[in-house]
Design a protein around this nucleic acid. Structure first.
Length: 531
RNA sequence: GCCUCUGUGGCCAAGUGGUAAGGCAGCGGACUUUUAAUCCGACGAGCGUGGGUUCGACCCCCACCGGAGGCACCA
């Protein structure tokens, strides 16, 4: 101990601090205080000394990634007399006495801080050691590499940018409680690199899709979340109330109808990547709010959409993971175009070995379901029965990306009838790893037919089907002005990201998944008085 | 809605009828090239909540709350 006694004022007269053998060392109040109380005290001490624990800004001059790019080639022991200013969260501290190492992280990466009493003085070193893991700080210093070869910033000054009142989770084990991870995503993102990785994949994939569509001349648009009619998909909506107009509105369940109005308006190629809401259950594949891509291209039909889907998905995979081969549940999946294309009836024949077709007599279709051990409802026609076989026995067996085309007309109310077979529609779904990834049609643009289908839906809704939609007369009116022939495509972005990131739960790809209210979080947990 | 699993100090985690291990973080101390730093020391929870059984419950029972998975429902 030379010039400075680092013992805080309150500890100076601590009883028993000299004799550790015989009598039990009595703890001072400060030593016993909670982490929160200690940190509150640090805040008030800082303010008393004229420092601000929550200052307004810090001018950094580069990110940590920039720093590594510029100086990563230095050899062990080298130093550069270049002053840098970086900022981030202090993730680790290793106190060596007259030298402390820190780990500073910003969004781009992490770098070691070399904080030496010989550089900043003993008093400042003590202050640095008073920082807590989790604090945000800005530092300036020069660049060096330790003799173990670790690129470091030799700190010449540091500033607290934001004091953390709560401690970070275990520095090695991190945060594994899934409930806490979803509720406190800010902590999850701070300590779990896997969580950050998933969202980096998400951002890259969405960006890739957006860029590719824009490159192809699609306009990105935004359409209303609040809908006056339920439509565009079969799903139960959320209902909310708009006070000013004193009426209930629906949160959108699909993007389809507004976007196709834009085709009527001549925008030709439009897309939207946006949130939709479905008032349904939560499980590993469903969140009540999720993100859809829908894209519509005039003058094409569903065959254009096949190529587009392949390019969007493969491009997203490449952008997000660097490869078009992904691994899901231990299986390698090759998303490289072109994908297999097979009609639904052919695929059924292949997998289940039965001849089935929506145009077959109903009693024959029922006989097949009976033989396969599948049940059916009296209202189902042959098309629905065919689809049931596909759903129950075929879809889950398809692993590699497959375009399953030409669905039964009966189960596809929004698609255009097949040009060669009136019992089918021009529709395809992309199946990957046993799950639906995309859905596309040649879009129905016949206003007479559209009105009839709306009326059927409205009748079903009136009969108690909460998923059936309303008659959207304005949409029919739009079609009566003429909608160009078009192909349309929908991709569930969340499920695409699940595939690319190799995660099994949709909650892993949504920053703030829907959860029940947290019990027990009350203001009692936020005392601001010390002690 | 049903079934199974699950909830232990800030984080991780053992204990599963006999009165709460351990690790990390935090606190005190040592240490100027560490990197999950190390070493020494002292401290911190009555086990999601509420009931019940028992001489005694974190451990058994019931209900409730939260979470996970599955089924059903749904696409």
């Amino acid at each position: 101990m030379d010039d400075v006694d680092p013992t805080p004022e309150v500890l100076r007269d601590a009883p028993g601090s000299a004799d550790t053998d015989s009598d039990a060392v009595e703890q001072t109040d400060e030593e016993r205080a909670s982490i929160r109380a200690l940190r509150l005290k640090k805040i008030s001490d800082l303010r008393e000394s004229g420092a601000e624990p929550y200052p307004y800004r810090f001018d950094r001059d580069r990110t940590i990634d920039d720093l590594r790019a510029q100086f990563g080639a230095l050899e062990a022991g080298e130093e550069r007399d270049v002053e840098v200013a970086i900022a981030g969260r202090l993730m680790l501290k290793r106190d060596q006495g007259r030298l402390t190492f820190g780990q500073l992280r910003d969004r781009s990466g992490e770098v070691q801080l070399f904080v030496s009493a010989g550089v900043i003085g003993k008093d400042r070193l003590v202050e640095f050691n008073d920082l807590d893991r989790g604090d945000w700080i800005g530092v300036t210093g020069t660049v060096m590499v330790t003799k173990k070869g670790e690129l470091s910033v030799k700190v010449s000054s540091f500033t607290l940018l934001s004091k953390a009142l709560r401690p970070l989770p275990d520095k090695w084990k991190g945060l594994s409680d899934v409930d806490a991870r979803y509720r406190q995503r800010y902590v999850d993102l701070t300590v779990n690199s896997d969580a950050r990785r998933v969202f980096e994949i998400r951002f890259a994939a969405v960006q890739s899709i957006r860029n590719e569509l824009q490159r192809r001349g699609f306009l990105e648009v935004e359409t209303p979340f609040l809908h006056l009619q339920q439509g565009g998909a079969t799903a139960r909506p959320f209902i909310t109330h708009y006070n000013a107009l004193n009426m209930d509105t629906y949160l959108r369940i699909a993007l389809e109808l507004p976007l196709k109005r834009l085709l009527v308006g001549g925008l030709e190629r439009v897309f939207e990547i946006g949130r939709v809401f479905r008032n349904e259950g939560i499980d590993t594949r469903h969140n009540p709010e999720f993100t859809m891509l829908e894209a519509y291209q005039a003058f094409g039909d569903y065959s254009e959409m096949m190529e587009l889907t392949e390019q969007l998905v493969a491009g997203a995979a490449m952008a997000a993971t660097g490869s078009t081969v992904v691994s899901s549940r231990g299986v390698q999946i090759d998303l490289t175009p072109s994908w297999r294309r097979v009609s639904m009836v052919d695929l059924i024949g292949e997998v289940v070995d039965v001849e089935m077709h929506p145009s077959m007599p109903l009693q024959d279709a029922r006989a097949i379901l009976d033989r396969l051990g599948l049940s059916y409802k009296p209202t189902w026609g042959s098309g629905r029965c065919t689809h049931e076989v596909y759903d129950e026995l075929v879809e889950s067996t398809v692993v590699q990306p497959t375009i399953v085309l030409d669905h039964p007309r009966e189960t596809s109310p929004l698609a255009k009838p097949h040009r060669n077979d009136p019992s089918l529609v021009e529709r395809f779904e992309v199946i990957v790893d046993g799950r639906e990834l995309a859905n596309a049609y040649s879009e129905l643009n016949d206003p007479i037919e559209q009105l009839a289908r709306f009326q059927e839906e409205a009748a079903a809704k009136a009969a108690g089907d909460p998923e059936a939609g309303d008659v959207d007369l304005d949409y029919v009116r739009a079609l009566e002005y003429g909608m160009p022939p078009a192909g349309g495509l929908g991709i569930g972005i969340d499920r695409l990201i699940m595939l690319l990131a190799g995660v099994e739960s949709i909650r892993e790809v949504i920053l703030f998944p829907t959860l029940r209210p947290e019990a027990g979080l009350t203001e009692a947990e936020f005392p601001s008085a010390q002690v």
